[in-house]
Design a protein around this nucleic acid. Sequence first.
DNA 1: GCCCAATGGTTGATAGTGTCAACTATATCA
DNA 2: TGATATAGTTGACACTATCAACCATTGGGC
Lengths: 144, 144
Amino acid sequence: MSSAGHALFGLLHVYKRALRERYLKAGITLPLSHLRVLREIGGHQGVMARELAEALLQDKGLITRVTRELEREGLVERHPHPSDSRAAHLRLSNDGRALHERINAIEQACDAQMTAALSDDQASAFIRTVNAMTEQLDRPQESP
Amino acid sequence: MSSAGHALFGLLHVYKRALRERYLKAGITLPLSHLRVLREIGGHQGVMARELAEALLQDKGLITRVTRELEREGLVERHPHPSDSRAAHLRLSNDGRALHERINAIEQACDAQMTAALSDDQASAFIRTVNAMTEQLDRPQESP
DNA sequence: GCCCAATGGTTGATAGTGTCAACTATATCA
DNA sequence: TGATATAGTTGACACTATCAACCATTGGGC
């Protein structure tokens, strides 16, 4: 069983587990999905729910739920959007920013372990390959 | 956001979606987790639940549930294990084998699309890299 | 300016995916 | 022989994800 798909399932399973263990060890108990959203928000000065959903390839309904919970935890703040009253501008609170830095560091360490056997060039090439494969799969499959 | 982890999450999300779409198009409605188990059984002449759980990095309880459902669908047969009366020998039925061939073909086509921009050598190297990264992460993280 | 379609977000409902724990029966080992 | 390990089952529950319906606002065409 040497298919790419099988290998990827295995890697991601192990990666998620490794991440979870590291977060738990650091006392961070939020689910991975919450931390991914928090991390994405942290990459912006203000972001709309729709933008999060797109960046994370997630359902907008799910984003609503997760951001609401992050708000309730005091990690995310909701501001009026500058030019669209339908939308909120989501930002990290101070607590959220502090946590963002911690999860960034943990993820980087996890990524570093994962790519420890690769050179820097190889690791960069890997990411490029993964992104290329993602785009390749995101194309309409024959009939649009 | 160019981390390996983020890229991998994206790829697997898109890969799963692509697989699901292809299976649905082929009239196959079983969940991906069921199809993965069925596929793993198909790679053996007879296999124990524990072996499936290990190969798929899954919980044995989950394997019990999934194999039971596959049995109920007539895709998997349970035989006594040759030398261990605690264990069953799970095999595909004729229907299961027919489906196994179909999902194999579909997955190969999906993998082919995913790796269309890579040469054969690059695709093989990719799988090797993925497996190496999986092993790298599977090591005890400092304190065993 | 009006009307309709598109968009941003919320909520309901549900299925799929996955983990941990407790239990029973069997196998293994000292 | 008794203690421990193992194979599998079941209970319970959390996480992850999707689809649909709805409401309010925005955008576009006339």
